[in-house]
Design a protein around this nucleic acid. Structure first.
Lengths: 339, 339
DNA sequence: CTGTTAGCGCCTTCAC
DNA sequence: GTGAAGGCGCTAACAG
């Protein structure tokens, strides 16, 4: 591979001119520009990124650390981030913490080694043990999961409110004993449980919330347990797509039908929720907007490190479907009326 | 951040010694080693990767270009690749071609700029227009999709055979008019269609294969069309998880039940295939093994660039479920017998 | 507008 | 076993 020196030689100019042309700087005569471009083409020259990064001390690379890449929610977000980044000539290093705080910490270290310009992170834990964004030499934007008092830019769903609306929807459709399965460790899980509990309290109902690990299998096991209790819950609310999937598996396993035996509602509008019969009532999350907002926030923070901390809160959309149909379907015409 | 010079100064040794210790070279006295390590810890020194890469001309980075990150199949594979890579201190740059050949080409270029050690690629097209692995300065391992005559290392499913077995299963369960929806552009789609056609031919049946774009929406539309033809197919075979999902949506849309009205079978053993009722018969793909095999192949190729081209063929596993139950359920006891 | 030059931080001969 | 020095390819002053 040709280097900048050879290109300069070939074009009959100095390396500085080549560098300037490659960087798109102004203040280069059109004549030189053309000679350089011709030489670049002739030699198939591509600037060496390692050298450029060493010299400029910039990587134009961001780290994206998601807590679980197999969770379709994060897949969608990753895609959005990646899409925007590459369009702007940025690189993305994707890391999957697998809901493991140690892995997460290791990746944050790695990001420091890589000298990334910034990191988008969905923390595995609610309270990040010893993690302070300020400890790292790069800005961090949190996504999806974030305590209210975090001092970092963040893009999150209105978790409490969304869960509140979802619970109220079930209550208004005639359900009273509503159980909630929520992610035990993430801030998101806690906030959604909170919204659920608030809705129950507001209607004088006793909440029954079970903390589970956010995996399909753990959720299924917990749901089966819950469903075998007496009296059985009349409805279940799941705080994430994976938990909802596990809960639905539990209903199959226990041969219970929804909504006749137990109503069902949850988070994440994934394709499969419309495939089961009846389809499942969910809060749809704007994954695309979330990803876009995160990278924009990060880029602005990189450009202006000292601007005020910002927090973007996106609204989840309630999608009412058959799994939460009125308990006593007196007026079916109202089945699709949102609460 | 401290650099190697400061560490050397702090430890009272030369930069060469620090470099040697950091690289784990032998031929350094224990005394020097300890002094260096102490200084490293004291200054929280971390070698600058850009400098190291510039100097050593190695990046210890691989590119992973998947054709569609939203396809759970690729998500799983990515996770496996990433897992193995990071354990061995390699970096992974994940790129999502979004089934767009232009994006794929752009990413391959990018990989060259990044000077990656190698690339794992699932090509978007069956016949890579103008793509020759030899054109790139790094080795390429193909995954999932690959023509038989490709001159690159590859890890693929036994697509023809798997589709053959799936079709035979349907035939043996009494279905005759079996339609096939297969991915139009990928080698995988073609190969699976081929296996299906062979099975049909072997049983004296007329194949009816429809090429579709490998997205949920396109598959649904095509399936609805197919289902409205007269006579209606008795069974449908979908060549990928996304196509299977779209096909299932089509059955919902047209109010047809499976297997009573139309039997159903496809590829990819995703959680949702067990949630719908009845569950769907599929070929399960060993995604984890596929990812692991790919990165191992790549690492061996990097270590020995001139070894013979290798091709790992993995076997898909037929999971028989209710969606393809015998047409005339005479002996229900045989429902779970694989063909 | 253009060229010369001094490093960015590290690895790696080559002497000692 | 250790240190001195050159250079990987590029950018950014600075001088002209």
């Amino acid at each position: 591979m040709a280097n900048i020196k050879e290109v300069a030689h070939h074009a009959g100019v100095s390396v500085a001119s080549v560098s300037r042309v490659m960087a798109g700087h102004t203040g280069v005569s059109e004549a030189t520009r053309q000679r350089v471009l011709t030489a670049v083409k002739a030699l198939d020259y591509r600037p060496d990124l390692a050298a450029r990064r060493l010299r400029s001390r910039r990587t134009d690379t961001i780290g994206l650390i998601v807590s679980d890449i197999r969770n379709p929610f994060f897949t969608e977000v990753s895609r959005a981030v990646e899409d925007v980044a590459y369009q702007q000539q940025w690189r993305v290093i994707l890391c999957n913490a697998d809901e493991n705080p140690d892995k997460e910490a290791a990746y944050l270290d790695l990001m420091r080694d890589e000298n990334v310009s910034g990191v988008i992170l969905s923390p595995t834990l609610a309270r990040l043990a010893g993690f302070h964004p300020a400890d790292y030499p790069f800005p961090v934007v949190l996504i999806d999961r974030c305590e209210r008092d975090t001092t970092a830019d963040a893009v999150v769903l209105d978790n409490v409110n969304a869960a509140y609306r979802l619970a109220v929807h079930l209550i208004e459709n005639g359900y009273r004993r509503i159980g909630c399965l929520y992610g035990a460790v993430s801030a998101t899980g806690h906030q959604r449980q909170e919204g659920y509990a608030a809705a129950m309290a507001a209607h004088g109902l006793k909440p029954q919330a079970i903390a589970v690990q956010a995996t399909i299998d753990q959720a299924r096991t917990a749901a089966v347990n819950l469903l075998q209790q007496e009296p059985r819950p009349e409805a279940l609310l799941a705080s994430s797509g994976l938990i909802l999937l596990g809960t639905t598996e539990a209903l199959r396993e226990t041969q219970l039908r929804f909504p006749e035996d137990v109503a069902l509602a949850g988070f994440d509008d994934l394709p499969w929720t419309r495939l089961v019969e009846p389809a499942i009532t969910v809060i749809a999350q704007p994954t695309d907007d979330l990803g876009r907002a995160a990278i924009h926030l990060l880029q602005q923070r990189i450009a202006q490190p000292d601007q005020a901390v910002r927090r973007v809160v996106l609204r989840g959309e309630l999608q009412v479907r058959g799994s939460s149909a009125r308990r006593s379907p007196i007026r079916t015409g109202h089945l699709l009326t949102t609460a």
